[in-house]
Design a protein around this nucleic acid. Structure first.
Length: 226
DNA sequence: GCGACAG
DNA sequence: ATCTTGTCGC
């Protein structure tokens, strides 16, 4: 399989962004949700052109998972993608979309990692802190950590740990014989809740409904703005 | 010095 | 993320 090559990032920029993450890190809270959610949101960003970012939010009822709102916003890209700093590239536009929501969700499922990050500040965590809303991350690829391959049957789970053996997430086989997902808490959420909600949002596809629908509408809106 | 590297 | 055809397997 091909491995992406990441152009070297400006050291000065990286130092600044790292400092910003460390500051935001002090505001992270890991805890169960105050109550079962009634509305759960999913969000996703795509890039119609190299310098344009299109972000989408979908809101679903829980546990029925009926779509109640779908909205988007597109703007100019400000930063390139740098592993470990995804939030600085995508969160700003996601914040703009969130403000447009008529129905504010009780929790947000983000496409990316929560605390399963080198500094425990993945995009799900960073977005959660900036909004001060419960969030958790569901990623399709690993960023950091170690784990054993989950059994091939849907529902199998294995812990994702950092080099010190600390639990930073869980690896879930969301569908038989398909590459597993990485689930981790973002902010105002905990591992058990993140996994519980992810499982409750599976409907026969690899991706749980919030992110799957956010992905789908991102594709639709992309055509709309052409 | 050699890998690893969300979207 | 994005560019892209056909193809193998359940």
């Amino acid at each position: 399989m091909y491995r992406p090559y990441h152009p070297p990032a400006d050291p000065l920029v990286v130092r600044d962004l790292t400092q910003q993450q460390n500051d935001l890190r002090q505001r992270v809270q890991l805890m169960p949700l105050p109550a079962a959610p009634r509305l759960i949101a999913g969000c996703d960003s795509s890039f119609p052109t190299p310098d344009t970012i299109l972000s989408v939010f979908v809101v679903l009822t829980f546990p029925e998972l009926q779509l109640v709102e779908k909205i988007y916003h597109h703007d100019a890209v400000t930063l390139p993608y740098v592993p470990g700093f995804l939030a600085f590239r995508e969160a700003p536009n996601l914040l703009r979309v969130y403000k447009k929501l008529q129905h504010k969700p009780d929790v947000i499922m983000v496409d990316g990692h929560g605390i399963a990050h080198p500094r425990r500040m993945g995009i799900a965590t960073q977005l959660g802190v900036l909004l001060d809303v419960p969030t958790f991350g569901v990623a399709k690829q690993k960023l950091t950590g170690n784990y054993e391959e989950p059994a091939l049957e849907k529902g199998s789970i294995k812990p994702l740990t950092d080099k010190n053996g600390e639990l930073i997430g869980e690896v879930l086989r969301s569908k038989d014989k398909i590459k597993p997902l990485f689930v981790s808490p973002g902010h105002r959420c905990d591992q058990a809740t993140a996994m519980q909600l992810t499982l409750a949002c599976l409907r026969g596809y690899k991706l749980p409904e919030p992110t799957r629908l956010a992905d789908y509408w991102a594709e639709q809106f992309k055509k709309e703005i052409r």
